[in-house]
Amino acid sequence: MRLFVGLPLPRRVRDELDHALVPHRAAWPGLRWPDPATWHVTLSFLGEVPEGILPDLETRLARAASRYAPMTLSLTGAGAFPSARRARVFWTGVYGSRPQLVRLADSLGAGARRAGAVQADRRRLHPHLTLARSGAGADLQRLVEDFGSFAGAAWEAGAVHLVRSHLGAAVRYETIAEYPLAASAPGGQS
């Protein structure tokens, strides 16, 4: 099964962002804009994972998450990968407890690899939320500039989710498990 660990967005945050994107979607019809119901912040992409490792994987992810305190986050600004002039991904940034979020992602990925998820992403997290995709690298400099002033409401992330991706004509995500961020140390690891 194809899995990732991520943070879902609270409905109020998702609705605020969705509303802010309305004029941009209309102005950029050539981009693929995912359904806001599927929006999430990916912390660790695990790839194809054999079902047999799921019990150990869940134990290790729960342990990693429990070492971190809940985090106050917000969505702010805009950018594009690999660059605004040759963009394949248009995104908004995730800010707030960013250093802790990056360490959490590292811990989740390491735990997943120890459990046998050999495809678990080893790249350092660049906290973002994907808003749109371009098939062939579009010049999105104007879109990045126009949406760059976006500043969303803050929310508290209190748990990470293990999610299964169902690919097809309409991508669907299924939460398999939820792991609380349970440490009591302020702003990070205990």
Rank of each mutant, 00 (worst) to 15 (best):
A159H: 08
A110P: 03
H128N: 13
Q141C: 11
A157D: 01
W155L: 01
G109D: 05
A153E: 14
Q141S: 15
E145I: 10
F147S: 08
D121N: 13
L140R: 08
R133A: 13
A132N: 12
R142P: 11
Q119E: 12
A154P: 00
L131P: 06
G137F: 13
Q119K: 10
V163G: 03
A153W: 03
T130Y: 11
A112V: 08
A110R: 04
S107Y: 04
A154E: 12
R142A: 15
P127W: 03
A112M: 10
A112T: 08
R122A: 05
E156H: 07
G148A: 14
R98C: 00
A112R: 05
R122P: 01
L129W: 01
A136M: 13
S107G: 07
G137S: 15
E156D: 00
L125R: 05
F147C: 12
A154N: 00
L143V: 14
D106V: 02
G152T: 10
V118Y: 01
G148P: 02
S107A: 14
R113Q: 01
P99Q: 02
T130F: 09
A115H: 01
H161L: 06
F150C: 06
Q100K: 04
Q141Y: 08
L125P: 03
G152H: 10
V118K: 04
V144W: 13
D139K: 07
S149F: 12
R114L: 15
V118W: 05
A153T: 14
A115S: 09
L131F: 12
G148S: 11
A105V: 07
H126P: 04
F147D: 12
A117F: 02
G152M: 03
G109W: 01
H161R: 05
R113E: 05
F147M: 12
H126F: 13
V160S: 01
R113K: 09
G109Q: 07
V144D: 08
G111L: 03
L125F: 10
L104C: 00
G137A: 12
G111Q: 06
H126N: 06
L125G: 02
L101Y: 07
V102C: 03
L162H: 02
A120L: 11
A120K: 07
R122E: 05
R98F: 00
L162Q: 06
A112F: 09
R123H: 11
R114S: 11
T130G: 05
R113C: 07
A154S: 01
